[in-house]
């Protein structure tokens, strides 16, 4: 497979996943704020600032917007063309990448991504957003999941498919770590206790942003605690959006791509994914909280960035 094709399929996987994660994140935040409408004693920045911090977008946003309002943040993360990570930009990039490798992906995949792009381009997306933002974000999420399903069901599970998977899982691992980190940026309103109503509700939103509410409740029997949620989203080995699950799958596809056996490595990306994988396998939640959740997640994100760079150097720009 051409290196350029590898690069494009990898980013196709990443951008679609990123669009979906942004949609979830915004949707859940909107909903959570509805619960606290009456108690909003803080500023808009207090409620929406964490979203931007999580996405590392605060600076660009401040440069584009004079005022900090919920509507401005939603628009910035959803539609802003100058924000390279807005949902709309992600869909553009995903389609550009798909267009560059149309000969490698199935027609069904192309039509799915192209339909999503048209939905944004012809103004239907903006219209739906204004009518009902929850339904709109749901639509984006489903479109991404439909794309993943169509990809699995119609594309040869060969090298190009593995690159799409690598992109998807690296993005999802990164995204889950950021969503979990969201709680670090969210301040409790004054007078609220850790473990109190508001705190629990915030952790619940974190879970819902990762579609993890139901799975978590089955496993933890209704007990939403900070360490419970963190442990679940970091190291559960069967929940498909936990960091560990994503890194496990990533490590597997990297081995398949390089055709080395598990537990061995042939190149830098495999070495780094193996390293991250074993760290996640043996991490305990006590140790993570002792180190500091935010610091721990920062470290994970840094390792993911190094892995991305190594991957790119090994397969795409040697």
């Amino acid at each position: 497979m051409l290196s350029r094709v590898g690069d494009s399929t990898y980013w196709l996987g990443r951008y679609i996943e990123r669009a979906e994660n942004n949609a979830r994140l915004l949707d859940v935040n909107v909903q959570m704020l509805l619960d606290f409408e009456s108690r909003r004693d803080g500023t808009e920045r207090q409620f929406w600032g964490p979203i931007l911090s999580t996405l590392e977008d605060t600076e660009l946003f401040d440069g584009l917007h004079g005022e900090f309002t919920a509507a401005a943040v939603l628009d910035y993360v959803t539609f802003e063309p100058r924000n390279p990570n807005s949902i709309s930009s992600c869909i553009n990039y995903a389609r550009e990448n798909a267009r560059a490798v149309r000969d490698q992906i199935s027609s069904e995949m192309w039509e799915q991504i192209n339909a999503l792009w048209l939905y944004f381009r012809d103004g239907s997306a903006a219209r739906d957003f204004r009518a009902n933002s929850h339904e709109f974000y749901d639509k984006v999420t489903y479109a991404s999941q439909l794309f993943q399903g169509v990809t699995d069901a119609t594309m040869t599970h060969g090298e190009a498919w593995r690159f799409v998977q690598a992109g998807k899982f690296i993005e999802r691992a990164d995204s889950t770590s950021r969503i979990l980190d969201l709680k670090y940026h969210v301040l409790l309103p004054s007078g609220e206790q850790v473990g109190g109503n508001v705190d629990t509700s915030q952790w619940t939103s974190v879970l819902r942003s990762c579609s993890g509410m139901e799975a978590y409740l089955k496993i933890r029997k209704g007990d939403v605690t900070p360490w419970g949620v963190a442990e679940f989203l970091i190291s559960h080995d069967e929940f498909p959006r936990s960091i560990r699950f994503c890194v496990d799958r990533l490590d597997e596809v990297l081995h398949d791509i390089a055709s080395a056996g598990e537990g061995r490595f042939r190149n830098e990306p495999e070495r780094l994914s193996g390293l991250l994988r074993s760290q996640l396998d043996y991490a305990t939640i006590d140790q993570i909280f002792r180190q500091g959740l935010h610091e721990y997640l920062d470290g994970v994100q840094e390792q993911i960035i190094r892995l991305d760079i190594a991957f790119h150097r090994t397969y795409c720009a040697y």
């Binding site: 497979m1 051409l2 290196s3 350029r4 590898g6 090298e159 690159f163 397969y315 795409c316 040697y318």
Partner: peptide
Amino acid sequence: DRVYMKTTK
């Protein structure tokens, strides 16, 4: 004087 394409392999 030979043409190659850059592949992942």
